[in-house]
């Protein structure tokens, strides 16, 4: 790491510290009523209290569980469907228009439908989360499969590789940069929809915690929940980037 990088990093931490200080100042001066806005000190205390009593742990686990199941289901289905559509020109021509209609559909519009059909259940949450998270993955997979170098398929033909071997040894690795980028986008979508489902269906999780805290005017708890959600989003996306770097090491060599 060179000096410039270190300086930038220090500067970005300084900016973050300034924001927290400003927040503390506003809270101390009571520019906003403490009922609605706790200072960072109270939010931190609420976080510590929540974790030491175990309440926040279980809520965090609930949200992570919703997010992970929905995202994994979306990834498996998105890659499988995307691979089928992407590897066939005919499928692309026939299916693409329907996809173009479904894709921009706001997922929030699906929630009442899902509740009507599945009730206020975990299954409903799983369906909504995976429905929302599947699009970036599926579209990226379609694109990745459609963009495989045709020459490689000729190499595969001359080696008389089986259909399965062609998919796993040529098409999937070739599409993997696109697929992983799609999965990273979906991670954020999955987190958002987990919170929405918890709020709407009262499922155990940080969304539910945030809602209850707001209703009871426990602003410190509310902020603790929000901070924790932010951290969750950040940590999962960093983990995803690390996984991408590791899986796509060959691309780093290419640059």
């Amino acid at each position: 790491m060179n000096r410039a990088v270190i300086l930038w990093r220090v500067a970005s931490f300084a900016v973050a510290a300034c924001f927290i200080a400003l927040w503390q100042l506003i809270a101390n001066l009571k520019l906003v009523s403490p009922v609605f806005l706790p200072g960072p000190d109270r939010a931190w205390a609420a976080l510590v209290r929540g974790f030491s009593s175990g309440d926040l742990w279980s809520k965090l686990a609930g949200t992570l569980e919703h997010m992970a199941y929905g995202w994994l289901a979306a990834s498996i289905a998105g890659i499988a469907i995307g691979a089928i559509i992407g590897s066939s020109r005919t499928m692309r021509t026939y299916v693409a228009p329907s996809l173009e209609f479904l894709r921009p559909l706001p997922v929030s519009a699906i929630i009442p439908v899902a509740i009507a059909m599945l009730g206020l259940t975990q299954a409903m949450a799983l369906f909504v989360i995976s429905f929302g998270a599947i699009w970036p993955i599926m579209l990226a997979t379609i694109h990745g499969f459609a963009a495989v170098e045709p020459r490689l398929y000729e190499v595969a033909r001359s080696l008389q590789m089986s259909r399965l071997a062609v998919i796993f040894k040529i098409a999937l690795p070739s599409a993997s940069p696109d697929i992983l980028a799609g999965m990273r986008l979906s991670l954020t979508v999955a987190l958002i929809l987990s919170v929405v489902c918890e709020i709407l269906a009262g499922l155990d999780g940080l969304g539910h915690w945030v809602l209850l805290s707001a209703r009871a005017f426990r602003s410190a708890d509310l902020f603790a929940g929000v901070i924790l959600l932010g951290v969750t989003g950040y940590v999962t996306s960093v983990a995803m980037s690390l996984a991408e770097n590791k899986l796509l090491a060959w691309q780093a060599a290419q640059r």
Partner: peptide, 8 residues
């Protein structure tokens, strides 16, 4: 360049 697998 196109006939080799860049990820291998």
């Amino acid at each position: 360049g196109k006939a080799l697998l860049p990820w291998r």
